[in-house]
Design a protein around this nucleic acid. Sequence first.
DNA 1: CATGAATGAGAGTTCATTCAT
DNA 2: GATGAATGAACTCTCATTCAT
Lengths: 200, 200, 200, 200
Amino acid sequence: MGIKERKERQKSEMRDAILSAALTLFSEQGYENVTMRNIADKIEYSVGTIYLYYKDKGEIFFDLHNRGFAEFYKKQLEIQHIKDPIDRLVAHGEAYVQFAIEYPEYYDVMFISRTPAKEIQKSAHWEEGERTYDLLKLNIRQAMEAGYFKDIHVEIAAFSLWSFVHGIASLYVRDRLRMLPSEHIKEIISGALHFMKRAY
Amino acid sequence: MGIKERKERQKSEMRDAILSAALTLFSEQGYENVTMRNIADKIEYSVGTIYLYYKDKGEIFFDLHNRGFAEFYKKQLEIQHIKDPIDRLVAHGEAYVQFAIEYPEYYDVMFISRTPAKEIQKSAHWEEGERTYDLLKLNIRQAMEAGYFKDIHVEIAAFSLWSFVHGIASLYVRDRLRMLPSEHIKEIISGALHFMKRAY
Amino acid sequence: MGIKERKERQKSEMRDAILSAALTLFSEQGYENVTMRNIADKIEYSVGTIYLYYKDKGEIFFDLHNRGFAEFYKKQLEIQHIKDPIDRLVAHGEAYVQFAIEYPEYYDVMFISRTPAKEIQKSAHWEEGERTYDLLKLNIRQAMEAGYFKDIHVEIAAFSLWSFVHGIASLYVRDRLRMLPSEHIKEIISGALHFMKRAY
Amino acid sequence: MGIKERKERQKSEMRDAILSAALTLFSEQGYENVTMRNIADKIEYSVGTIYLYYKDKGEIFFDLHNRGFAEFYKKQLEIQHIKDPIDRLVAHGEAYVQFAIEYPEYYDVMFISRTPAKEIQKSAHWEEGERTYDLLKLNIRQAMEAGYFKDIHVEIAAFSLWSFVHGIASLYVRDRLRMLPSEHIKEIISGALHFMKRAY
DNA sequence: CATGAATGAGAGTTCATTCAT
DNA sequence: GATGAATGAACTCTCATTCAT
């Protein structure tokens, strides 16, 4: 049984390696500009080998997408223990942006990049995305009970907050902050997250 | 001189046609998925002809980028006559998002898409982008003089507002609003823009 | 108009060249064993060029198939002027086998080789095949009127004659006559065709 | 010795399994379209295992070819007890076509398909083929002694009969009987075999 | 000015075969 | 003996780009 386990682990490690290489390349150069050979070269295997683990290029993207969302959701959950609903909401936003900064490649693949053609997806993988959005709405509702977001529909509040953090994240990830003084970027981002509290 | 002018006009019309076709295609399918032949077919000319007007595919993208910014800046200017600084800021945001909705292709090319390769130019086309950002900061400063944005650094306020509208615009353009009830999307966007006023 | 015509001719010549190369290769090595590059090399053009004239490998096969049948039918018609129905039938058979000997590649592609997958065909291209078969049945019916093929159903007679010549042709084309004294092959084939008359 | 024998038997069983799987696949899809993995999957072994029993794909084909001929010869022998030479010849033909209908895969591999590449061997496996052909000639000679095949050279008669049955068989195997009413195919084939008697 | 023909380079993918375990 | 992992070579097909006409 030990053997079987080791094999499984190796298999899984290989998939990890492929994903990791692909993630970097995809986010650096975009899905379309990355070739299977690029990925193979990066992990120092032959092209054919990749096809032992993934049926085609799309499936790699797909798996990446899924793993990104899983990781993402986990990060969001970690914040849920905070009592004060406002603190929790801010932390929620911080965690969101932090995820994008920490894993820009994932963020790119999940929220920005054009999905490769077929987009067989939707149903399956978006569940994870919606779970996160539901979490946000839950937190907003609790803030409402504590007296915030007066006269605002929860749907609008949720969309606003999401747009806000997504705006920050995507400008960062797609490198559109060149007109900002680069040494202060983190500071400005942090400032923005706190500024938003005024609207609650 | 009449002849010369006509020639120039014709030349310019051809470039317009190419750009227009390219814009639609790029935003529908992404830069990498559009072939020169696609563009040629769309304008009903041969592929070779395009090369008489543009040196390569990248240059088309580049020109598109520039025209997008020019158009964009023009739209922003149209709002400047509004007296009340808050109204003006809101209108500014509305115009921003409206631009993205109206010209999703331009918006994509300007603010979301990865710039193709070399992006040697930087300086040149970003001027236009910075001009717009300066306009935003100007408007914010005037709102400050009218008593808004208390205790907020202008740089942070500007970045926040920009992030906010960019978030909305880019979620819309890259079709990440699938979890929203599609019949209410416009309404929700509008609600969000007004919600933001609370932070001013 | 002269220009247009010349272009058309050139285009048509190119298709001919491709077909001709493909025909040789297909019949020498079989459809699956021939690569687009092989064909390209043979006509001394680049691979891509072939795709300007044929959308894919299957289409080349398809065109070949059609041309083969057209040529084949023509040959059969040339015999139709013979008055005596028996002479005509024998000539029919001779022409059949002659076609296979003269154009073994066509014969192969038309009557022996496995059709490449999709077999979109049937309807369209088999018409030509059926036309020939109808011709055979017509000739048999006329022989019947002259007192031959007593007590034999026309369908059975036609199938028998066809099987007979196809047997000869396909043994020849697929080189299964190795056990025959090679210097007498033509003679034996001719003898066989005359032997068959005894069954009429 | 028991152990050795069992091993031999197991080895032989494995080869049988491989051949049987390969035979089906080859005749269904053609030699070139069958992959080693296909074969392996069919017998539920790994690809590598096949290489323990056969040195390469060509060798499988080769072995198949041989076994086909052995089986074929056996079938022909079974007819030899028939007294009347004409009955025997007809039975011979029926057995021939029957073999093709029963084992189209073998027939294909033996008499139609292009031999894969090198076909170094020739000599070896053709012996079996020639033995069958000799049997046919023997039967014809005996029919001659009984007064049939007047004025016909045995070589020509043999070739004619073979061509005839091969024609039927190969049209059947390669599915070129589409213009025949499919519900009557067997009947027509049978009719043709009897029609041929008229030439004896 | 406009074109159609041509191409080189490269894309994703498949497969027979090898080999360490 | 049997396997699964790995690979190199090859395949079909695409595309930005060039150029003679």
